[in-house]
Design a protein around this nucleic acid. Structure first.
Lengths: 150, 150
DNA sequence: CACGATTTAGTTGTATACAATTTAATATTG
DNA sequence: CAATATTAAATTGTATACAACTAAATCGTG
């Protein structure tokens, strides 16, 4: 009852506080920021780091496969991968068996990044200050929702 | 034991699958995409929609206050708000009592948007296909984590 | 085999995000 | 009260995101 003729009733469903989307959106960005100091030492951005997580595990992946796993399209990945190629961290070559595909591989410098990155996850986990059980629980809930939407 | 001399052991902590950050990052984008069809009809982007959620509730907020609530800085907000001003949905004026601040207010067209937006949250909730209890639970967990990090 | 449909990357254009810097206004302090 | 520190927006530059489109290769079907 404070202000002038503000006709609009404060629909609780339209309040930022009651949305699921907002904490998801904001927390995602805050966690990215929590990675930033460590990733900066590796000269990596957060999405670039995700690409390397996959390459360290699989050695080689096509742009399509990276996109399927990260839920990103070529409009995002192509320029990102070109930047990593310029740094001589990855290789990009057409698949000789299907010239439509581009195979992304690790170059030595990119493979060596893994040694320096291996402390990153523990560091983040520590900063979350969260019991492992809650962590696993939350991860499972988010992953389930993600599967439903994607 | 499949491939060549891949020296790297598959550190499970470095696998995308075991990160909390990735489902958070991916789910945030997927939910934004779930909003997109409805927001497109309102000619709004998702961050613009968040700004309006706050303005519909508070009528007027400074750029600083918007940034505090959305965890966004002026580098993001200023151009976003200028676009909304160009559409005559919001007003931007300096606070006469503190010329450093810019007060964002709703113009009639921006206020009317609320009527058309009020179905958006229910629509999204339906698409999540999730018991209300789980929804509230997840929102609470994310909000708690967010408070810790921000 | 021919040819239209599909698939994969790449390109273009727009809109965030955010670090770093700048500018102007206000607050603080000696 | 003057010098300094702090604060709020804006600006600059880089890197995502993503829709829409293009180009080239492959697939499927008659």
């Amino acid at each position: 009852m404070s202000h002038a003729a503000s006709a609009s009733a404060p629909d609780p469903l339209l309040q930022l506080e009651n949305q699921l989307c907002f904490p998801l959106y904001a927390l995602s960005r805050m966690i990215t920021k929590a990675y930033q100091p460590m990733l900066q030492e590796l000269d990596l951005t957060y999405p670039q780091y995700l690409v390397f997580l996959l390459l360290w595990e699989h050695q080689e992946l096509t742009v399509k496969e990276l996109g399927d796993k990260l839920l990103l399209d070529s409009g995002t990945l192509t320029p990102l991968l070109k930047r990593l190629e310029q740094k001589q961290w990855i290789s990009r070559r057409r698949d000789p068996r299907d010239e439509r595909s581009v195979i992304i591989g690790l170059l030595p410098a990119g493979r060596e990044l893994q040694q320096r990155a291996c402390q990153v996850p523990e560091h983040i986990f520590a900063r979350l200050n969260m019991p492992l059980q809650d962590f696993e629980n939350l991860r499972h809930q988010l992953t389930t929702l993600l599967t439903q939407l994607a």
